[in-house]
Design a protein around this nucleic acid. Structure first.
Lengths: 185, 185
DNA sequence: GCGGCAGTGTCGTTTAGGCAACAATTATAG
DNA sequence: CTATAATTGTTGCCTAAACGACACTGCCGC
């Protein structure tokens, strides 16, 4: 299967949306293949040509999302850490169903958020060390990082919870304005 | 081409959405096939296997929509005319892009709305004549029909203009409550 | 218990969509 | 004016998705 084929991309996305939707009000265990293909409007056989079962679909979803986020964050060209959130917010906005699932899905160990945090923190420290031309970070810096990252993530989390009713631009602006109010260590 | 094939339905819908989207800020004349297939994320050759050009797509869209509405209205089982709006609102909600186009698209003679009005009025009169067991309608009734139909259509129109920010149920409730406040002739 | 109903995997066949390449026709800019 | 970029139709080949059918499992109500 060529994963760059439009048809493949579309069915994958349709199935992911269907699962994300289903998981908002149902445990992963209780979701059937039938149900998913109905929602996604694809043939059942097509499902099996991509995934072994519902769990398989979920695992690939989570894995893909983490890869995507990691890529976005590491590809960050300018190296300004505000841009990290720009990429993240864009991706979330383009994949609302997936995001809702990863942040609020039922019956999941929410290690995804920890993963997310780790990736971002790593980038923060990398940028800081580069900017300040130092080889290690102080304990104070780590606390600052936690404070700021978790704060921003909770803003994004709330945004998703509110079904993106706040305009994307406003969220970005918000995070930027918080940054501006900061005196970097 | 079997128009009941899922793939066909999906590409048709994707192209319709793309055109509807494009027409909101561009004249029909200025829209290219290229642009549409990019938006719809389908191959250009696929476009030509369905339509001759952009105008062809538009005409079929309008025609299909009118057919759909007519069908909904005439299939109305109970014969209660409030249900007409139920069907219409459902359809609009399921086809937001198409609806925006038909109500607010640029560079179109908005004969669609007149068409819509005619279909609804016909149904109204049919129901009334049946209920009252009469063979013709009074002039007064025609005025009442105009008043009520155009009023309801303008509510729906505003709803679309507001990007469906008002919940669907509330719109239906609104129209029902208006009905309840009426003393039928 | 058993009949029916929903879901599961799998298979062979058909078909719509994807793709790349083509010549031909318009823009659009330098 | 000319080049060069973009859009247009069209083609042949390939493949993923659709479809219907199959036997099989598990579950629920009578």
């Amino acid at each position: 299967m060529n994963k760059h084929d439009r048809r493949v991309k579309k069915t994958i996305k349709a199935l992911q949306s269907a699962l994300a939707d289903a998981m908002l009000d149902k445990e992963l265990q209780k979701i059937t293949v039938q149900e998913l293909v109905n929602k996604a409007d694809i043939h059942r056989a097509t499902f099996y040509s991509h995934y072994h079962d519902v769990y398989d679909l979920y695992e690939q979803m989570e894995h893909d999302a983490i890869s995507e986020f990691t890529k976005f964050i590491n590809d960050n060209p300018a190296g300004h850490y505000e841009n990290i959130y720009n990429s993240i917010i864009d991706y979330i906005y383009e994949n609302p169903a997936l995001s809702r699932l990863l942040f609020f899905g039922k019956g999941i160990d929410h290690k995804f958020q920890e993963h997310m945090y780790d990736i971002i923190e790593e980038k923060y420290l990398e940028i800081w060390m580069q900017e300040e031309n130092i080889s290690s970070v102080s304990e104070e810096m780590l606390y600052m990082a936690t404070y700021h990252i978790q704060g921003c993530l909770s803003i994004i989390s709330l945004w998703i919870k509110n079904n993106f009713s706040t305009p994307k631009e406003k969220i970005i602006q918000l995070i930027y304005s918080i940054d501006a109010r900061w005196n970097m260590p």
